[in-house]
Design a protein around this nucleic acid. Structure first.
Lengths: 229, 229, 229, 229
DNA sequence: GATGAATGAGGCTTCATTCAT
DNA sequence: CATGAATGAAGCCTCATTCAT
């Protein structure tokens, strides 16, 4: 009776706004569950992005979402399950992003986007990086990441093969190996981004991207002159 | 070495004074001290390599070294100081390794070694990776890693410039940018190693290394034929 | 049955009234209610038998019964009420079992059945044991167990008195004291059963039963020879 | 600095008194550890006797001993380890009790003591009972109890054999079977003690003990008259 | 009438750190 | 100088119970 206040807390107007856009909100049926789960997932992602995996306690996630700790463990069996779901959701988001940007014909534009993904405003990279760091001791993470990374590289390979057919990508190295290199490069950048931000200042990043394109272009494409710095 | 000051709490110069006052032999006590410290450092490195940063508690380190909990907190002001020292020591070790392998004239051999460092039997990469993952929230880590990584890339740049002069490295991209790419590539590999071990099976790794060499070689070097898989 | 009052919170007589108001069939809803309650009770018994009282959470009971958490708290005021109902139901079941087996004339056969009850395939003993262990801190349990145990011993006393009249039970000890001893013996066995299963292997159990019969038989019955092992 | 108060709390004079009786307390060497451990063990025993296993949280044990929760987990790896130690210590105590009371020649006196152990002022029975109830789900408990119980029954068998030789115990039933029965009887009593205290009121208990002695005495010993109630 | 989302307390455990000895 | 006993906070998780729907 004295702590009734807490019960009303977590149904702010925002929730209703979102629901209201789709339906006039009758009877509060199912679907609420999924929505709440997604909300918590978003909170978990945000917390992990801001505080790292080590700092991502269930308590903080709950707090960030405006819930109690108990609520989190109601929606997720345990911490591992929660962050496993985070990995999946974050990959889903990235896949969706890729889907929308695959249409354009210019291979190099795509690659630029790809390599430049570090600057996407999503929390994709920080989160993946954090979870990756714990993958060795959380096999569930490793399994998902392996599977989804492989798929990403497949997509990239397809794009590169198209580029080789069109003559804009060097043909002396198999596309899957190039895809692997590009993937590794962007992974490496992502990893160092929080440590060496000035290494990725806009100007320098531009040069890096250009150099990367040069690495995978056919010899003739770059003519003779050195790339400027 | 430059920031030893923060690492030890109650053992400034007085340590040696005190020892000297009690016994005339003045080498041993200090040696003991340093030796024990190094022992703990090695234990810390081993623990972090095996259990990750999240699992690397001071207690485990003490246990692994066969010392008591108190010993750890006596030789290091706190956890941060201890693992800061680990970062330094691990880089020192890697620098020493580089030093010994820099002599040979063949640039490509060096690069092979460099890129292949993932397979070195030292704990360098797993440890760096773990500490890197926490660098954003442990500025002390970030500072050291940034400084030492920069130095590593400088060394690599020098080697690559020599290669460009000798004509075995493509000259159309500035050496520092190539160094950056190579560094990123090996970082990316290192990061994925625990998750996708089969991606780095000996055969595939060979192809990857060969492809990387191809990427940074002058066009003529690879002649016409595609690199095999 | 006598203390049903406490067991159900919000479903006094109104339950049937409410059901009757909505539908003309008046047998089903109440039947549904009782049936569901019984279902939950059975599940509770099974859970307590398998996981012990400590492991018998309302959630597990609900799960085992295939119902939701809310169902349990709807049909029972609280945990205590639920397990109180379990005690009653489990004694009811055992009483029914006794009723069916009391007819035969041979007193020793009955005693054998009684003492051998540990091997009955019902969950009677494990459940009673678990609830008994918590009786001191759950007075509701203690009250029921005391009452029903006393009744059991009364029945046993009656049987033993008949045996004394028939001359197959020793007459030098009052029947109620013998009943007490027998009750204690089987309690003691039941208690140790989970800990020392091999102490109750068929062969040894046979010898124990025979020895018990010998203890309560008139001197002449066992003649001179020692009971074999 | 502000909470120094707590550090001094748990070294009251009583501790020093006990130590002082044996030694003038120099340097506070080892032994302290064992003493503290024993202190916690005693607290654990007391708590389990008073509140049952279900109510015996580490928190309560620590509180009862005047320590923090952390202290408990410092002396015992975990809850299981602590209560395992409790089982052992409680059996040790009971063994010691038996040892001191085994000397007298009169077998029946010994048996009286044995059967009457329920009234011993130690926490032996309540504690054993509580731990026994959890033995099925805590194999460590079961193992210890099985071992030590077997030893107790061996001692009892030896005593009974002596009685048979002296002609005060009936010889028609093997001593080990009688020992088993007696053990079961006292177990059964112990189990019901908290539930039916009036069943073990002094007068009735006297009758029960007398009846038990009668059960295991040679026929001639009890003469003709019925045992009174 | 019945559900299941959510709570908040409490359980066990691990940990970095402090301090008397 | 060095130890290890002890702390107290925090982490994850389970649970009985409440309440809006």
């Amino acid at each position: 009776m004295s702590n009734d206040s807490g019960s009303v807390r977590r149904v702010p107007q925002k929730a209703e706004e979102g629901a209201a856009r789709l339906a006039p909100r009758r009877g509060r049926p199912a679907g609420d569950h999924k929505a709440k789960r997604a909300e918590l997932l978003k909170a978990a992602t945000a917390v992990i992005a801001r505080e790292g995996y080590a700092g991502a306690s269930l308590r903080k996630v709950a707090q960030h979402a405006g819930h109690t700790t108990g609520a989190v463990t109601y929606y997720f069996a345990n911490k591992e399950a929660m962050f496993t779901a985070v990995v999946e959701s974050v990959f889903d988001e990235f896949d969706a992003f890729l889907e929308t940007s695959r249409d354009p014909a210019d291979v190099k534009t795509i690659l630029n986007q790809w390599l430049n993904r570090t600057s996407a405003d999503s929390d994709f990279w920080p989160v993946i990086f954090q979870l990756l760091a714990h993958a060795r001791h959380e096999p569930a993470f490793a399994a998902i990441i392996e599977r989804r990374y492989a798929k990403l590289r497949e997509v990239l390979t397809t794009i590169l093969e198209r580029g080789q057919d069109e003559g804009v990508i060097r043909g002396d190295i198999p596309a899957d190996l190039i895809a692997d290199q590009l993937s590794a490069i962007s992974d490496g950048w992502m990893m160092m981004l929080p440590v060496e931000p000035e290494r990725f200042a806009p100007k320098r990043l531009q040069a890096l991207l250009q150099a990367t394109i040069a690495l995978i272009s056919p010899p003739s494409d770059v003519s003779d002159d050195r790339l400027g710095r």
